[in-house]
């Protein structure tokens, strides 16, 4: 049957096989909103707050705010990778607390142990999460819920049911790492920025980063295209654990002690920050810079409520919650619009 060539000659070539025109304009706008929406809101909030409170836009307040945000930001960085693969890591809050207690305990032996011990323990938990998620195909939600409980138990055991509080020795280099600074800006801020720079490079510009997106975007297709799915998943959970442990250690140095109640529900703040920053909770799309903006937004709102003073700090959670809902609704709306377009 030689009918195909006839048809081929009769084809209108200009169409090019792409989706109809007109879809791409709306597509671009919704992609921009997804990516930079949080930044626009952050700038607006900062502007309004600066005009309303003269105590807000001061070097002292901003530095304190940034250092405060640094710990959550480091945790959110790891969470970003996990969420882009389509997973979730609920253990980071407990790992953060465990890291803090271990760091404070180990700081009596010097700065290096104070950093290495918590990071190693957190890495082991992250590795276990990764192995279970990648090899057994158990839901990440369940796996990391279990390790969240496990890590909390471990932390209580180390701190004698929370009765024992280890203090970081005064004047140690470990303390200086979190409390010192340069040009009026605390070291943790520099550290966080460096980590985000590296994280961004890793995600956007390396083969590993591409496989993170591919696994979250379509796991089966990724496997058929030759992506090492299991290895990619293992790596993101390992990273998430390591970063949470490190953030916990840094926080202990900042506070001068390992505080056991810290890190409670921190995983939820981290997830909120990541989602507010434009990363899709279903995976496949996301940006580390967005997560940084998300963390800052949460922290600025907290700061504003503190500045207002008359409002109970509980309202911070209400505002964050409302914000999160708004973002998720917007995301769903945008992606539905795109599917139709």
């Amino acid at each position: 049957m030689a009918r195909t060539p006839v048809t081929a000659a009769a084809v209108d070539v200009s169409r090019g096989g792409a989706a109809p025109a007109g879809a791409s304009g709306a597509e671009r706008i919704s992609a921009l909103a997804q990516r930079h929406g949080a930044l626009v809101v952050l700038v607006a909030v900062v502007l309004v707050t600066s005009l309303s409170f003269d105590t807000f836009f001061t070097g002292y307040n901003l530095n304190r705010l940034a250092v405060n945000a640094a710990f959550l930001a480091i945790v959110a960085l790891g969470m970003t990778f996990v969420i882009i693969t389509g997973g979730i890591d609920l253990s980071v809050g407990s790992v953060f607390a465990l890291g803090g207690v271990l760091a404070a305990w180990a700081s009596q032996y010097g700065t290096l142990p104070a950093l290495l011990v918590p990071v190693a323990a957190a890495g082991a938990i992250g590795l276990a999460n990764g192995l279970l998620v990648a090899r057994t195909r158990l839901a990440p939600f369940i796996v990391t819920l279990a390790s969240m409980l496990g890590a909390r138990g471990l932390m209580l055991a180390v701190s004698g049911e929370g009765n024992e509080t280890y203090l970081v020795p005064q004047g140690s280099a470990f303390l200086e790492l979190a409390q010192g600074g340069l040009f009026g800006i605390g070291y943790p801020v520099y550290l966080t920025l460096a980590l985000f720079g590296l994280g961004g490079l890793l995600l956007r510009r390396t083969g590993f980063g591409q496989s993170v997106y591919a696994v979250g975007g379509n796991e089966d297709a990724a496997a058929l295209m030759g992506v090492r799915v299991a290895r990619t998943k293992l790596t993101v959970y390992l990273m998430s654990g390591l970063l949470a442990g490190f953030a916990g250690a840094l926080n202990a140095a900042y506070l001068g002690s390992g505080v056991t109640i810290l890190g409670f529900a921190m995983e939820l703040d981290a997830i909120a920050a990541v989602v507010i920053g434009g990363t899709l909770l279903t995976g496949g799309l996301g940006y580390v810079s967005g997560s940084l903006v998300g963390v800052l937004l949460l922290k600025v709102i907290q700061n504003v409520i503190n500045l207002i003073g008359s409002l109970s700090s509980s309202y911070q959670q209400v505002v964050s919650g409302l914000f999160l809902i708004a973002v998720v609704v917007a995301q769903t709306y945008l992606s539905r619009r795109r599917r139709i377009g």
Binding site: G207, Q210, S211, Y213, A214, G216, G217, N218, D220, A221, A222, L224, M225, G226, V227, L280, G284, L285
Partner: peptide, 16 residues
């Protein structure tokens, strides 16, 4: 069709 819909055309072409 087994590609990753959210990634760009070029990134799908060169993934890996």
């Amino acid at each position: 069709v087994n590609l990753v819909p959210l990634m760009s055309v070029a990134r799908n072409l060169y993934l890996g």
